[in-house]
Computed example of a mutant assay.
Amino acid sequence: MKCYEITFSPTGGTQKAADLLTKELSGECTAVDLTKQDADFSAAAFTAEDLAVIAVPSYGGRVPAVAVERLGTLKGNGARAVLVCVYGNRAYEDTLAELEDAAVQAGFRVIAAVAAIAEHSVVRRYAAGRPDAEDEKQLQAFAAKIREKLAAGDDTKPAIPGNRPYKKAGGSGMVPKPGKGCNHCGLCAQKCPVHAIDPQDPQNTDQDLCISCMRCVSICPQSARKVNPVMLAAADLMLKKVCTDRKEGELYI
């Protein structure tokens, strides 16, 4: 059995949660990074004996559209899949259901699903530092149960929560922009998952292409890219009631 870790993780939180789970499932995994701008994901083909951990963040209770699109180019060929959705302590709503449909459409057999928590990518004080030590223990326990299912040859499909049709997708409208500290190094344009930043002029961001993933903010060496502080404060206030209490991960198996 070969193990693959297929992730869309612009700011690293989803990757961290996926790594913690995958490490317990299999000692060695091949990475497939769905954030790469121009990768030929159709070249990735799997076999029925393989195991794929497919991890995405929840953006407003949905899978990022670009992640669904790129996942759809993979050739699952009956490989078993463990789905992971990672959210910023608010709610994941229809994310797992949508991810399940995308994985099945790509030819994977879904055998388990996990909802995990990581630091909110926009208002970072919510779920700050997560996944933490408690989350790691929980993900280890989830992995042990999934390993038991694999060892038993049990490929039954879990009951995964979510609505169909999915909730209406909506963008946050938060498009990061560079400040005076920007030295035009171009790293943000190079690493933007959707080509929203002009490589010739990083000051120029296409608001229609931007998915508010906050990768440019998280990787800027000068900490020069920011979102509008008024909008950030409004988002903080809106999330305060639903994000303050600690939420725990969930396993569907």
Rank of each mutant, 00 (worst) to 15 (best):
P10F: 01
Q15T: 11
L20I: 13
L21Q: 07
L21P: 03
K23L: 13
K23E: 14
S26I: 10
E28H: 14
V32I: 15
D33V: 10
L34Y: 02
K36P: 04
F46I: 08
A48I: 08
L51S: 01
V53D: 02
P57L: 12
S58E: 03
S58F: 04
Y59M: 10
Y59K: 09
G61T: 02
G61C: 03
V63T: 07
V66Y: 06
V68K: 15
R70A: 03
G72F: 05
T73Q: 13
L83D: 01
V84N: 05
V84I: 15
G88S: 10
T95F: 00
E98S: 11
E98Y: 12
E98P: 09
A102D: 00
A102S: 06
Q105A: 15
Q105G: 11
A106I: 06
A113D: 04
V114K: 07
V122Q: 03
G129L: 05
D135V: 08
K145C: 01
R147P: 00
A152E: 05
D154Q: 09
D155L: 14
D155V: 14
P158E: 03
A159R: 11
A159Q: 13
A159W: 02
I160C: 02
P161K: 07
N163V: 09
R164E: 06
P165V: 12
G170K: 15
V175P: 00
K177I: 12
K180W: 04
C182H: 06
N183W: 08
G186R: 07
L187P: 01
A189V: 00
P193V: 10
H195A: 15
D201L: 07
P202E: 01
Q203H: 14
R215W: 01
C216N: 03
S223Y: 05
A224L: 04
R225D: 01
N228H: 06
N228Q: 04
V230S: 12
L232I: 10
A235F: 13
D236I: 10
L237K: 15
M238D: 13
K240F: 10
K241C: 07
C243R: 06
T244K: 11
T244N: 00
K247V: 10
E248I: 12
E250I: 09
Y252D: 01
